[in-house]
Design a protein around this nucleic acid. Structure first.
Lengths: 135, 135
DNA sequence: CCAGATAAATTGACGGATCAACCAATGCAA
DNA sequence: TTGCATTGGTTGATCCGTCAATTTATCTGG
């Protein structure tokens, strides 16, 4: 928990001067990955750690900042598709490099095989926890 | 981050039926550890991951539930000492066993040397992150 | 065709985290 | 001892996370 918290802070430090939170940044990256096709609201949530209901208000705030565009789907009128705007894309370009570098710096104390071993152990922990929590 | 989130959920699942959050449970454990002497507000915060300002409102909620007692110190009138009440102690007794068991279960997929190695790597990560964030 | 189940998304309510600003008490130095 | 910095704690504002309930739309079995 402590390590996760420090990683959070490290990313926050980078993203915050641009007026974004980490979650908002994550959503923008996911939407950039989705490209022209866009993505329904809940599909964004699935790609994040976070659960469903928070994602709506997160998108609300990004829409106010003109970084996200939303439109109800005609094919299935329950769905609302989301796209990143050019404003959002431009912001991401500024943040990408420092974020990538922060990731590299954070793990500079471990060599490659240690990182692999760390990831494996965390995956096994998650597997155990997944069954404890009922998949 | 994902693993930390699952651990959170696993503990939440246990603590929530008792009307507590994980943070409230943590505060109660810290205050039990402090015993008769009690603990000033900010000292509680230092023992948690959390930062200063949140702790006040967290204690407010625990005080409403009569699980915590607070009193301004006479020796240094800036400080506010906190104690766990008998109500809080009784609640902790009910939760301790399932919580301990949850910790054991979560790590049942790793043997002892693997857990040690995981902890070491996370500690080294935190050390790197600590210097990145300016101690 | 239509009643009920299910799915997508939203809203309200509440707890928690963080930042900035603030107040009161204490410590300290000239 | 008076003025100023520091410390302990609180408050306001904003965002995030989660639960329960709700709305609207789609699907499906009879």
């Amino acid at each position: 928990m402590r390590t996760a918290d420090l990683i959070q802070r490290n990313y926050h430090r980078i993203v915050e001067p641009h007026g974004l939170t980490i979650q908002q940044y994550n959503v923008l990256r996911i939407l950039r990955g989705a490209g022209e096709a866009g993505l329904p609201t809940l599909d964004i949530g699935e790609r994040m750690i976070e659960q469903t209901p928070g994602i709506t208000r997160l998108l609300d705030r990004l829409e106010v900042k003109k970084m996200v565009r939303r439109q109800r789907s005609e094919r299935d009128r329950r769905q609302v598709f989301c796209w990143i705007t050019p404003v959002g894309l431009r912001l991401l370009e500024d943040i990408d490099t420092p974020i990538d570098q922060a990731g590299i710096d954070a793990f500079s104390g471990l060599d490659e095989s240690e990182v692999r071993s760390l990831i494996l152990k965390l995956e096994r922990l998650r597997q155990t926890l997944g069954t404890l929590l009922g998949e």
